[in-house]
Simulated scan of single mutants.
Amino acid sequence: MTSAKKKAAKLSPISQLQGVLLVLDNRSGRPTAEMLANVREMVGDALSVLNEPDPVKQRIGFVLLAIQQSTEVVVKTLRGKRITRVTVVDQPLYHWALEEIHALAGAA
């Protein structure tokens, strides 16, 4: 195992994904082949760790991701009050996620 692999093995999935964001936020121009390889490796490692063997937990995670992807949340402060506006940007995905939530709640 190389020293780079040993370091990557010690990083948590969250740290790996944050590293991906740092690489992607690099404003110095186009990403190099090495940077892209690092991104690919970090994402692959994070996904392999985040794979949940429990099918119910996998389903819950997918539903939460669908809710996140199908909605847009904007928080504003207006006259000292916090206003949260949620807009559904993908109706079919949002409706599917709500159906899954109801199915999960009925199964519990």
Results as ranks from 00 to 15, higher is better:
Met1Cys: 15
Val86Arg: 01
Ala9Gln: 15
Ser3Pro: 07
Glu52Cys: 10
Ile83Met: 06
Val89Lys: 13
Val75Ser: 06
Glu99Ala: 10
Gly44Lys: 02
Met42Asn: 03
Val86Met: 00
Asp54Leu: 04
Thr71Ile: 04
Lys7Ile: 00
Gly106Asn: 12
Ser70Trp: 00
Asp54Lys: 03
Leu64Gln: 10
Ala8Cys: 09
Ser70Met: 03
Ile14Glu: 12
Val20Asn: 05
Arg79Ala: 13
Ala4Trp: 07
Ala107Pro: 05
Glu99Asp: 15
Leu11Asn: 06
Ala37Tyr: 07
Leu47Ser: 13
Ala9Ile: 07
Leu93Asn: 01
Val39Leu: 09
Met42Lys: 08
Val89Ser: 12
Val43Arg: 01
Ala103Met: 12
Ser3Phe: 04
Val75Glu: 14
Leu104Arg: 02
Gly106Tyr: 06
Leu98Tyr: 10
Leu64Asn: 13
Ala108Glu: 12
Arg85Met: 14
Glu41Phe: 11
Ala66Ile: 02
Leu93Tyr: 00
Val88Asp: 02
Gly44Pro: 00
Thr32Leu: 06
Val43Met: 02
Gly80Arg: 00
Leu98Glu: 08
Lys6His: 13
Leu50Gln: 08
Gln91His: 05
Leu17Trp: 05
Gln18Trp: 08
Gln69His: 11
Val56Ala: 10
His95Ile: 06
Pro31Cys: 10
His95Ser: 10
Arg30Ala: 11
Leu17Met: 09
Val20His: 03
Lys81Leu: 11
Leu78Gly: 02
Leu47Asn: 15
Asn51Ser: 14
Val20Trp: 04
Ile67Val: 05
Ala66Tyr: 00
Arg59Cys: 12
Gly19Tyr: 06
Ile83Pro: 00
Ser48Lys: 14
Ala46Met: 04
Glu99Asn: 11
Pro55Leu: 02
Ile83Ser: 03
Pro55Val: 02
Ile14Tyr: 10
Gly29Arg: 07
Ala37His: 04
Gln69Ala: 12
Leu36Glu: 14
Pro13Lys: 01
Arg82Thr: 12
Gly61Asn: 01
Lys10Met: 07
Pro13Val: 00
Gly80Trp: 00
Ala108Leu: 15
Met1Tyr: 13
Asn51Pro: 00
Val43Lys: 01
Ala37Asp: 11
Gln69Phe: 07
Gly61Leu: 01
Thr77Ala: 01
Met42Arg: 08
Lys6Val: 13
Leu64Ala: 02
Val56Tyr: 13
Met42Phe: 04
Pro31Tyr: 04
Glu99Leu: 04
Pro55Thr: 02
Asp45Glu: 03
Lys76Asp: 13
Val39Phe: 06
Trp96Ile: 01
Asn38Tyr: 12
Leu78His: 03
Glu52Lys: 15
Asp45Arg: 13
Val23Trp: 01
Val74Thr: 09
Thr84Asn: 05
Val73Lys: 07
Ala97Asn: 03
Val43Asp: 03
Ala8Pro: 04
Arg30Trp: 06
Gln91Asn: 06
Gly29Met: 07
Ala105Phe: 08
Gly80Met: 00
Asp90Gln: 08
Ala66Leu: 09
Ala97Asp: 03
Ala8Glu: 06
Glu34Leu: 13
Asn26Ala: 15
Ala9Glu: 15
Arg59Ala: 07
Arg82Ile: 11
Asp25Glu: 15
Arg27Gly: 14
Leu24Ala: 09
Leu104Asp: 00
Asn26Thr: 15
Val20Ile: 11
Leu24Pro: 04
Val49Gln: 15
Ile83Tyr: 00
Arg85Asn: 08
Pro92Val: 12
Thr2Ala: 04
Asn51His: 06
Ala46Cys: 05
Leu24Arg: 01
Leu50Ala: 06
Asp25Arg: 09
Arg79Ser: 11
Arg59Gly: 08
Arg85Ile: 08
